[in-house]
Write a protein that binds this DNA or RNA. Sequence first.
DNA 1: TCGGGCGCGTTCGTTTTCGCAACCCACTTG
DNA 2: CAAGTGGGTTGCGAAAACGAACGCGCCCGA
Lengths: 163, 163
Amino acid sequence: MGRTADYSDQSCSIAATLEVIGDPWTLLVIRDAFKGISRFEQWQERLGVARNVLASRLKTLVAHGVLEARQYSARPPRNEYVLTQKGKDLADVLVTMHAWGSKHLYGDMEAGVVFKHIPCGQQLKPRVACDCCGEIVKRSDIEMIVLQDRPTVGEILSRDEAA
Amino acid sequence: MGRTADYSDQSCSIAATLEVIGDPWTLLVIRDAFKGISRFEQWQERLGVARNVLASRLKTLVAHGVLEARQYSARPPRNEYVLTQKGKDLADVLVTMHAWGSKHLYGDMEAGVVFKHIPCGQQLKPRVACDCCGEIVKRSDIEMIVLQDRPTVGEILSRDEAA
DNA sequence: TCGGGCGCGTTCGTTTTCGCAACCCACTTG
DNA sequence: CAAGTGGGTTGCGAAAACGAACGCGCCCGA
């Protein structure tokens, strides 16, 4: 393609998030990171993704601070990649996406990967709750508000490219 | 390739979900659908996406039952596209992605789009709760389990292409 | 009645990026 | 010292995305 597709003239944290994790394969890389995968070769084998693409994805995830490259061998230089706090916070996104696919695509059948909620021992069916009042959020309780003159995705993301 | 990238040999509802909403622009189309956008021209203008790409995205979203095409003029045939139940259920995904971007990219600054939780009147900070026991889910409470011999993404999605 | 404009796409030629396979480099092991 | 391994980089088509132009049916004003 080209996927020159950048959303950088918008001002929306959904669009910004997509700039970071919206590339093909990226979210699956992160999913496997949650499973404990941390080395190039493991991702490559499990996903079957092209090596150059994988290298590029890991690089941008590190640049955005989702993964941290940790050198475990000095010479030859060998990295492993582990989730940062920022990366671990993507769990919510994975969980809700999993729930949607599970319900609407797999028809509540169990797919090859499931989440378990350890405290209650059941398979996790996530519901979104409001942190402020603690209530479960129904869809009709949500209003989307559009504000004017907020910083664009481009402005936001150019900062951590400076690093 | 051009993104022949298909995850169809995997068995994972996250991968399956990505097959449906993982294309560039698709999630932003859905975001705008939540804002009330329902016509081709409106999406095109707001997103600046190429018209053929937009047409293709709308078509596959309809094919997957996320949007419903509703003809509002017989001649010339004119469609509008509205979210189905399946589509509306993606709200959770949008909300969690929004929260992540808001926290980690915008640094809790307000971006151009925010969600409001109507019952309590506050800006929505979503937390994931377990439907079974009602508790807020902490990251350490989640275990990812890999099962064997489950239907692949390809098998699952080929069904509603038959429609 | 003629022209222009709108709404909704489709077509066409051009870029980008992906997938694949091959290659490379620095060790390690036999 | 040859073969192997982990972690990438390089080069070549092919498939998608891009953008601009075109089509088409209708409506409106002159």
